[in-house]
Design a protein around this nucleic acid. Structure first.
Lengths: 99, 99
DNA sequence: TTCATTCATCGTCAAACACCGATATAAGCC
DNA sequence: GGCTTATATCGGTGTTTGACGATGAATGAA
């Protein structure tokens, strides 16, 4: 994974509200729309929508329109890709230290 | 780890220059001062110093003054703590999805 | 058609970020 | 005391972020 992309994903995760949103989406899998998330957080709907947009843009979640509402779901492939890249990074940082 | 702290650490990693700085520090272990890092990057010394400050503030690196120069080193304990918290997070997000 | 629901987007504002050059500050050397 | 080196910090500038309310667009129900 490119450094820029890794940094973008980490930056996207670098806000407590977005961590919460991801957890909410993972928990309520497939039946969670923007309004549901907003109910769980002390934020305005427009603010939640912006946070969701950030997560969409880096590909960590995707949108599945279902009738009148949009269901957001975590993308496992993106998450495991990130997991791998993050593992490489920490391995590099820790590994180089003890050599 | 608190969500806020995790988010702060991820945000600190969420910039390509800081990822580079960490790699440089890990590679040149114990003999890397601010000027050395600056030589490796297309940034001014003051900018590099600020990036280093961000990494210091979240505890990912520490400063060991050696004579006239400051040597910065990656903190393996902080990194493995982050590794653990990140693993918990992705596990939670991925695990909840396939249950 | 009219109304309600859901959501994205717009405009705005204050705060934070990223970058720079310039200026301290502090330590070691001559 | 002066000089160099290494670094932090200051002041400034332009960009981005995070938040909000308000508005628009799309869908489905009455």
């Amino acid at each position: 994974m490119q450094d820029d992309h890794l940094a973008n994903m980490l930056r996207a995760l670098g806000h407590p509200a977005r961590l919460n949103i991801l957890r909410i989406l993972a928990e309520r899998q497939k039946n969670c729309c923007c309004a549901d998330v907003t109910q769980c957080l002390p934020l305005a709907q427009s603010t939640v929508s912006q946070h969701i947009k950030v997560l969409l843009e880096v590909g960590l979640i995707e949108c599945r329109s279902q009738g009148t509402k949009n269901c957001y779901v975590v993308r496992p492939d993106a998450l495991s890709g990130l997991q791998g890249a993050f593992g490489d990074l920490t391995g590099e940082l820790l590994g180089a230290k003890q050599e």
